[in-house]
């Protein structure tokens, strides 16, 4: 068990360190950490070259996590991710050869380019925290944090993730282009790859597990539960193709708690819920009339329609 102050101190150190690599993306970094603390998985949707991989990589380094990158392609097979049983001549038996999924932090790059079969293999592993191959269950390491990236859906030759699969990622963020100042700093600074190599871990997997446990102790009053319930209820009013699921509600609560912890508080405010709401609803809610709205605009609409009880 870790006391709250140490926890907050370490989280701040993590944010600062990553902030040196990914310039001008504090909110994205914070949301990524929220996702990690909430014991969920992160989906980053953006055009290539804005630093998705760098973010994932630096997170892995700073958190001291074992890191694997899986490049998803249309010919990638489930076994390429999960691992295979290989026959060992010397012992005369099959021996499990773990795939890249047996890692603490996985970057599933361009997940929407793989076939649905391969996609679901990863998503099931994410959900179950374990892999079953030929009747034998292999437990995945802990913490287990998947960062999947995907290019915006317009691009050809992709298999967009269905809604049910998207729901497995508790948050979806996009990095976007850096602002002018950050971009200048980026151009003037050192090569990011070089910087990454120099990064030292600020924390350890054990401590991350402790922090994840700490999230469960963040105070959540009944007034706040009412607020979450009313927000979710509002998305089920027929305006969207489908409203938020109970799983999404639980995710909202968890990520709100994690956000509050990152803010150094031991209780959740409506503001925390409002802060994570865009990343939570962006990939879950589709307007009935397919109106094009950014995740922020959509979340604003919900927030403005539901008075805080």
């Amino acid at each position: 068990m870790m006391d709250a102050d140490t926890c907050i101190y370490e989280l701040n150190a993590i944010r600062e360190t990553i902030g040196k690599i990914i310039i001008g993306k504090e909110r994205a970094i914070r949301l990524s950490l929220t996702c990690l603390l909430a014991n969920g998985h992160l989906l980053i949707e953006d055009v290539p070259g804005v630093g998705k991989t760098t973010l994932a990589h630096s997170l892995a380094r700073v958190l001291g996590l074992e890191y694997q990158r899986i490049q998803f392609t249309s010919d990638l097979l489930p076994a390429d991710i999960l691992g295979v049983n290989v026959y060992d001549r010397e012992t005369g038996s099959f021996h499990f050869h773990p795939g890249p999924v047996f890692s603490q932090l996985i970057l599933a790059d361009e997940i929407n380019r793989a076939t649905p079969k391969t996609q679901s293999a990863l998503l099931e592993a994410m959900e179950e925290q374990q892999v079953s191959i030929e009747g034998i269950t292999h437990v995945l390491p802990s913490p287990f944090f998947v960062i999947a990236t995907q290019n915006p859906l317009e691009q050809a030759g992709t298999f967009p993730l269905p809604e049910s699969q998207l729901d497995r990622f508790i948050l979806r963020i996009s990095l976007g282009y850096p602002d002018a100042e950050s971009e200048r700093a980026l151009l003037l600074g050192q090569d990011r790859r070089e910087l990454l190599k120099e990064l030292d871990p600020v924390t350890s997997p054990e401590r991350i597990r402790a922090m994840q446990a700490q999230v469960g102790h963040i105070q959540c009053s009944s007034a706040l539960i009412d607020y979450i319930q009313q927000l979710i209820q509002w998305t089920r009013n027929g305006q969207y193709q489908q409203g938020l699921s109970p799983r999404a509600g639980l995710a909202l609560l968890r990520s709100g708690r994690a956000w509050a912890l990152l803010d150094g508080r031991d209780y959740v405010l409506p503001e925390d819920i409002q802060a994570v709401l865009p990343s939570l609803t962006g990939h879950r809610l589709v307007h009935q009339n397919h109106s094009v709205m950014t995740a922020e605009e959509q979340a604003r609409e919900i927030i403005d329609s539901v008075p805080i009880p």
Partner: peptide, 9 residues
């Protein structure tokens, strides 16, 4: 005053 504005905001 906005009903959707949280107290700390």
């Amino acid at each position: 005053v906005n009903q959707s504005e949280g107290p700390s905001d």
